[in-house]
């Protein structure tokens, strides 16, 4: 279940919901999946989604039920004679006020969720994400209050998917698997590596056109807009590989710029980061500063 102000108050609802939908914590899409993932981050809109869904289902059952009863009882072929009334102030007040109350309840939940989401303070780590046509660039900005020295790389669609996805390639998408899991169009050459249990702040910008960074297991997407920085955060609870895709139309290969986040235990991450920093230093000698390119102005 979630925390962050929305989970607790509705756990009863969600429990009932899960009974019906299975409520597995899918990390990645699975065949025939019908519902939203619960996610692996501390913040997740899953519970709110379930509440809203059930509210709609219940109202739907009532409204459609009434309709079907009407269609059955008041048909001419059964000899029904039309009544003359066409108004009832009392009823109309009821069905104005009751929805308002339901909506206030939902709005209250959603506001709580929103407030938690919007709070990017207190992060222990900052990563800058830049979207390009059609790849992502990740730059590690700071970790545990310390600046990270030039760790950054580009991450793009992995090669076998790329070959398979060419028009009439006649290659079989089913064949692209990692650990028995189909990763067609959901795998990259270099994943974003992050630690679990750390509040990570992402700074998200666009390099050319608008993209949107989305990993369903983290519970949100955020647009990457050229020249404007957005922020979002996550705190991943379990190690794992979490896959997502660009979620804003960004040109012909919009469907082919996946995102892979590899969440590892803190110690492992720190080790990884240290190696990356060393490598960066070695490279720096050979290559002159290859900082994150500034956004390219349009036009």
């Amino acid at each position: 279940m979630t925390s962050g102000g929305i989970g607790r108050s509705v756990s009863a609802w969600a429990a009932g919901a899960m009974a019906l939908f299975g409520g597995e914590a899918w990390a990645n899409p699975v065949p025939n999946q019908m519902n939203m993932t619960q996610g692996v981050s501390e913040w997740s809109p899953y519970a709110m989604h379930m509440v809203a869904l059930w509210v709609c289902v219940v109202i739907g059952v009532i409204v459609f039920g009434a309709m079907f009863i009407a269609m059955f009882r008041f048909r001419k072929s059964r000899g029904a004679v039309a009544e003359k009334w066409a108004h009832s102030t009392k009823l109309e007040i009821v069905w104005t006020v009751v929805p308002v109350i339901i909506l206030i309840f939902l709005a209250n939940l959603a506001t709580g969720g929103l407030t938690t989401f919007a709070d990017t303070t207190g992060a222990d780590m900052t990563i800058k994400i830049t979207g390009y046509q059609w790849k992502w660039r990740y730059d590690y900005v700071d970790y545990k209050g310390k600046g990270v020295d030039k760790v950054g790389f580009v991450s793009k669609l992995e090669e076998s998917s790329d070959r398979t996805r060419q028009l009439k390639s006649n290659l079989d998408p089913d064949k692209i698997q990692v650990d028995g899991y189909n990763t067609y169009l959901l795998d990259v050459d270099k994943p974003l590596v992050v630690p679990v249990g750390v509040k990570i702040r992402f700074i998200i910008v666009g390099g050319d056109v608008i993209h949107s960074w989305w990993v369903p297991a983290l519970g949100w997407k955020m647009d990457a807009i050229p020249g404007i920085a957005n922020a979002a955060w996550t705190k991943i609870k379990e190690p794992g590989v979490y896959r997502g895709q660009c979620a804003e139309l960004c040109g012909q290969d919009h469907g082919f710029m996946p995102i892979v986040v590899k969440a590892v235990p803190k110690a492992e991450f720190e080790q990884w980061l240290a190696t990356q920093e060393d490598e960066a230093k070695i490279q720096k000698a050979a290559q002159t500063a290859q900082n994150a390119p500034a956004p390219v102005p349009q036009g």
Binding site: K128, I203, V205, G227, I228, A229, N230, A231, A294, P295
Partner: peptide, 17 residues
């Protein structure tokens, strides 16, 4: 103003402009 770092724009100012 946002591009200049006011209010909602602090991050934009820090990271882009």
């Amino acid at each position: 103003p946002w591009l200049g770092g006011e209010g909602h724009g602090v991050l934009t100012h820090q990271f882009v402009w």
